[in-house]
Computed example of a mutant assay.
Amino acid sequence: MPAANQTSDLAALTGRLQAHVRHLAGEIGERNVFQAALARVVMGLQAALTAMASRPDRSQ
Rank of each mutant, 00 (worst) to 15 (best):
M1H: 14
M1E: 13
M1D: 13
P2R: 04
A3Y: 05
A3L: 12
N5E: 14
N5G: 11
Q6D: 11
T7G: 01
T7S: 09
S8I: 13
S8W: 06
S8T: 14
D9M: 15
D9W: 12
D9K: 12
D9Y: 14
L10I: 09
A12W: 02
A12N: 08
A12L: 05
L13A: 11
L13F: 09
T14V: 07
G15I: 04
R16E: 11
R16K: 10
Q18M: 03
A19L: 05
H20N: 14
H20A: 13
R22M: 04
R22T: 10
R22S: 12
H23V: 09
H23E: 11
H23T: 13
H23Y: 11
A25K: 12
A25Q: 09
A25L: 06
A25M: 09
A25G: 03
G26Y: 02
G26K: 08
E27D: 10
E27L: 08
I28Y: 09
I28D: 04
I28V: 14
I28F: 03
G29H: 02
E30D: 15
E30I: 12
V33S: 15
V33E: 15
F34E: 15
F34K: 13
F34H: 14
F34Q: 15
Q35C: 10
Q35F: 06
A37W: 05
L38M: 06
L38K: 03
L38A: 07
A39P: 00
A39S: 05
A39Q: 10
R40I: 07
V41H: 08
V41L: 09
V42A: 14
V42E: 14
M43W: 02
G44D: 04
G44T: 03
L45P: 00
L45R: 03
L45Y: 08
Q46S: 11
A47T: 05
A47N: 03
A47H: 05
T50E: 13
M52N: 03
M52F: 04
M52V: 01
S54A: 15
S54D: 11
R55S: 06
R55L: 10
R55W: 06
R55Q: 14
P56C: 02
D57C: 00
D57V: 00
D57L: 00
S59K: 00
S59Q: 01
Q60W: 00
